[in-house]
Design a protein around this nucleic acid. Structure first.
Length: 422
DNA sequence: TCTGGGGTCCTAGGACCC
DNA sequence: TCTGGGGTCCTAGGACCC
């Protein structure tokens, strides 16, 4: 049996930990650039707000009902996520952190010693006690069923935060009640195709013959079918290294000037290089993409991308930024109001197995590597971008995303630690 | 005025090999 | 009359996830 532990309205729950008094109140967390709603409490949902709504269109509802709005603060959420995962690891031998707010706990061997529901309820209690984050748990023979269980646990108080699907009867009952669109692995396209074939509930889908599914759907959908029938077959183990790394942003204000756009791209490129070093990788391809504001029909539209290949795989900020700047030069058009840009590094390999290049234009790689290490150390100690390339420009630029309601980095920055007045 | 960011995996089709 | 069979690798795009 496997348990899926899911944090309820995670980003909002984190904000509520540090803003007591918001319990039972409508709270929203926004996307980068204060654009859309990405997380909201049930109270906010009840007002008609939805995940994905642009916040400027919802100003009326927000102001009339006193909805508390936060800018996204990923450092804070990531720090809290690590705390939750650590507690799970202290309770269950094998824990796989699946996303920032979800972990799978493998319960093999636990059923002989514990009642699984009781045991996981004690884990929920421990998480609550140590972090004040509410979580919901689904326990089932497969991950897809466990995820389904966690949704039942979240939506019905009777389960007391833990829903177990451990018999065929419970499985069929759950499949009959659950919304097909909410099944893990069923997206918009698959949903439409299933409906076309007359399948409207997870139960109808699970009751099809495997051969019927195989002949009409791609492999991932077949796996979902197996999982719904209680046969575990989805592997969620994390890769040691990411295969592509991307840094992209929408701009706080539109950018028309090449120098300003170049500064943004340099900033993203340096960030990609930093992420590469963080996982001890090097990349061979650097892609830059830019786009105008697709919502402004009154302005000329433009979107393009270009890839530069490097002769020697690298994680050096200077090289990657230079490559990104070249790629940008190839696609930059004057007269466009750019709203978004990004850098992707790909063709990633381990930094311990780099093929040397006889004609390498970088004369002293070991020294450059040390330079990057020193920069990373300084930035870790004194804050991100304390030491940066001149190409990245000043730290206060028009393109920087808006973040007008950000709470402090209470868990990671001594200067932003919570102040309590007694 | 204002609309997110970062990933993985699968598949079909083309290029190429003998 | 009649025009093969079997494979690999790469890439772009689609679908899905959080």
């Amino acid at each position: 049996m496997v348990a899926l532990v899911d944090c309820n309205s995670f980003f909002c729950s984190v904000e509520k930990v540090f803003h007591p008094g918001l319990d039972g109140k409508p709270v929203c967390v926004l996307s980068c650039n204060d654009g859309c709603i990405v997380a909201l409490t049930p109270e906010a949902k009840a007002l008609g707000l939805r995940r994905g709504d642009p916040i400027f269109k919802m100003r009326d509802i927000v102001e009339r009902n006193g909805v508390t709005v936060f800018s996204t603060n990923m450092y804070l959420y990531a720090a809290m996520s690590r705390r939750v995962t650590n507690i799970l690891r202290s309770c269950v031998q094998r824990v796989e952190n699946y996303s920032i707010d979800e972990s799978f706990c493998y319960l093999d061997g636990y059923e002989s010693r514990f009642d699984l529901a009781d045991y996981m309820r004690s884990v929920v209690e421990k998480v609550r006690l140590c972090t004040d984050i509410p979580v919901s748990v689904g326990i089932a023979p497969s991950k897809t069923l466990a995820k389904m269980g966690s949704k039942f646990a979240k939506n019905y108080r009777g389960y007391r935060s833990v829903c177990v699907i451990d018999s065929d009867e419970k499985r069929r009952k759950a499949l009959g009640l659950f919304d097909l669109a909410d099944v893990w692995g069923v997206g918009r396209q698959t949903l439409a195709k299933l409906r076309y074939f007359g399948v409207t509930t997870p139960l109808q889908f699970a009751d099809k013959k495997e051969s019927w599914v195989r002949s009409r759907f791609p492999l991932p959908t077949v796996q979902t079918w197996r999982e719904l029938n209680g046969i575990p077959c989805i592997d969620t183990s994390e890769r040691a290294q990411k295969q592509t790394i991307c840094t992209s942003r929408s701009f706080g204000a539109m950018v028309g000037d090449f120098t300003a756009l170049r500064a943004a791209v340099a900033d993203f490129a340096a960030s990609c290089a930093n992420k590469l070093r963080g996982q001890h990788s090097v990349a061979t391809a650097v892609t830059v993409f830019v786009a105008s504001n697709r919502f402004r029909e009154d302005l000329p539209q433009y979107a393009n991308g270009a890839t530069v290949r490097l002769e020697t795989p690298t994680s050096d900020s200077i090289e990657i930024t230079a490559a990104a700047t070249r790629a940008l030069g190839a696609i930059f058009l004057p007269g466009i109001h750019y709203k978004r840009a990004g850098v992707v590094v790909s063709d990633i390999t381990d930094d311990g197995s780099v093929q040397q290049n006889l004609f390498d234009h970088v004369r002293n790689r070991p020294a450059r590597r040390q330079l990057m290490e020193r920069i990373d150390e300084l930035n870790h100690r004194f804050g991100l971008k304390t030491v940066r390339l001149v190409a990245e420009g000043e730290q206060d630029q028009a393109w920087h995303p808006k973040s007008e309601h950000r709470s402090g980095n209470y868990l990671s920055d001594i200067n932003e630690i919570l102040t309590i007045r007694i």
